[in-house]
Amino acid sequence: MDYIMWLVVVIVVLALGFDFINGFHDTANAIATSVSTRALTPRRAIILAAVMNLVGALMFTGVAKTVGEKIVNPFKLEVPEQGLTIVIATLCAAIIWNLITWWFGIPSSSSHALIGALAGAGVAALGWGGIDPEGFTSVVKGLILSPFIAFAIGFVIMFILKQIFANASPHQLNKAFRGGQVLTAAFQAFSHGTNDAQKAMGIITLALVAAKVQTDMDIPLWVKIAAALAMALGTSVGGWKIIKTMGTKIFKIEPINGFSADLGSASVILGATLTGLPVSTTHVITSSILGVGSAKKFSAVRWGMAGRIVLTWVITIPAVSILAALCYYVLSLFLL
């Protein structure tokens, strides 16, 4: 096996590692509300999330193509070693950031980490001309706008349900919506798989094009299956620190709130997938929970915790971009 193929193998291992970490880092996205309201036991919730993540990951490729060619254009990477070093630096920086935020129980965005890292490594290697400004702008717009849309949709769904069931028995209401939460948790996990697993697929395919192994951005079947399995396996491990933050520290979630938050956020994520835009499932789901909490009772939301989460959102892209640039400079000493 020649040097270029060894680098490709390293990238595949790192990308699947990122997908695995993304799975346990973002398990909370799909199951935090259903676990916190006891609609599902933690074990059943994780199994459901793993299975539905796997199904969702195998069904779409639009987001993968966006990640693979809309930030750093793989067809302009004339030196294979340089292109592959960019990808390795990207994955190293994103994995480091994910592990740091997981350790501290902060629901930061794996998507922001990956996009920011790819941009940072690309600029470090090629200068500002190495980034596709139109593609990068469209991706960042999607990342920024989607949480606001999710907040609004979560607020509206909760407001409507609050009016409809204003005179309902709290006991009967909780019982009914616990059942509904099983369906929305499944929908949530499915939508997560359709968007998040695509990002690793895009990175691997970018590497294959940079290495001249293939000449287009069509996602190979083995890449789809490997990324989907890595995401599902990571999901099965679970991320309990983040589950606690998402499910208990923003506001006290009841079954009707969890149902509303899951339905709103899953709809936004699936809509983004259908348009080929990568979004932060963490941001979308957290924003939907905030919207639902605001509709329930504005003062019930723990805005201090929400502010801490938002601060992490703001700093992720610039922080990971710098980290990825540093990784590229270090790796270039050994790989180029």
Score class of each variant (00 low, 15 high):
residue 29 N to L: 09
residue 250 I to D: 14
residue 212 K to E: 07
residue 230 A to G: 10
residue 58 L to I: 13
residue 42 P to V: 00
residue 315 I to D: 00
residue 325 A to P: 07
residue 80 P to F: 13
residue 290 L to G: 10
residue 66 T to E: 01
residue 188 Q to N: 13
residue 146 S to C: 03
residue 306 A to E: 07
residue 76 K to H: 13
residue 290 L to Y: 05
residue 327 C to W: 10
residue 173 L to V: 07
residue 330 V to Q: 01
residue 203 I to F: 07
residue 111 S to D: 09
residue 200 A to V: 06
residue 91 L to N: 10
residue 139 V to G: 04
residue 137 T to Y: 07
residue 125 A to P: 01
residue 276 G to A: 08
residue 4 I to E: 13
residue 153 I to T: 08
residue 320 V to W: 10
residue 330 V to H: 07
residue 294 S to N: 11
residue 18 F to S: 12
residue 153 I to S: 05
residue 247 G to D: 03
residue 296 K to A: 11
residue 331 L to M: 12
residue 2 D to S: 14
residue 175 K to H: 10
residue 236 S to L: 12
residue 234 G to T: 06
residue 68 G to T: 02
residue 215 T to E: 13
residue 141 K to Y: 00
residue 308 R to H: 01
residue 280 S to K: 04
residue 197 A to Q: 12
residue 239 G to H: 04
residue 313 W to G: 00
residue 60 F to N: 08
residue 62 G to K: 15
residue 240 W to F: 05
residue 136 F to D: 00
residue 286 T to L: 14
residue 235 T to F: 10
residue 219 I to T: 12
residue 25 H to C: 11
residue 158 M to T: 04
residue 333 L to F: 11
residue 114 L to S: 08
residue 277 L to Q: 06
residue 111 S to Q: 05
residue 166 A to R: 14
residue 281 T to I: 05
residue 115 I to Y: 00
residue 90 T to F: 00
residue 310 V to F: 14
residue 161 L to I: 09
residue 295 A to Y: 09
residue 204 I to L: 14
residue 203 I to W: 04
residue 316 T to P: 10
residue 180 G to H: 02
residue 87 V to K: 06
residue 44 R to W: 15
residue 17 G to M: 14
residue 314 V to F: 15
residue 140 V to K: 11
residue 47 I to G: 12
residue 177 F to H: 05
residue 293 G to N: 05
residue 69 E to V: 02
residue 89 A to R: 03
residue 294 S to D: 02
residue 185 A to R: 01
residue 67 V to S: 11
residue 303 W to D: 06
residue 94 A to D: 07
residue 304 G to I: 06
residue 129 G to D: 03
residue 77 L to R: 04
residue 180 G to T: 01
residue 71 I to T: 04
residue 85 T to E: 04
residue 39 A to M: 01
residue 32 A to R: 10
residue 115 I to S: 05
residue 291 G to T: 03
residue 118 L to C: 03
residue 300 A to L: 07
residue 224 K to N: 12
residue 329 Y to W: 13
residue 229 L to I: 15
residue 49 A to L: 12
residue 199 K to F: 12
residue 260 S to P: 06
residue 334 F to D: 02
residue 6 W to Y: 15
residue 67 V to M: 13
residue 147 P to N: 03
residue 54 L to C: 08
residue 207 A to I: 04
residue 244 K to F: 05
residue 263 L to H: 00
residue 1 M to R: 11
residue 257 N to V: 00
residue 317 I to W: 09
residue 5 M to I: 07
residue 329 Y to G: 06
residue 168 A to G: 01
residue 172 Q to A: 12
residue 271 G to Y: 08
residue 173 L to Y: 02
residue 238 G to T: 03
residue 14 L to W: 03
residue 187 F to L: 15
residue 9 V to I: 15
residue 225 I to H: 08
residue 268 V to E: 02
residue 147 P to D: 02
residue 166 A to I: 09
residue 200 A to C: 06
residue 267 S to H: 04
residue 26 D to P: 07
residue 130 G to H: 01
residue 232 A to Y: 13
residue 6 W to F: 15
residue 157 I to E: 04
residue 197 A to F: 07
residue 268 V to M: 10
residue 146 S to E: 01
residue 193 G to C: 09
residue 234 G to S: 07
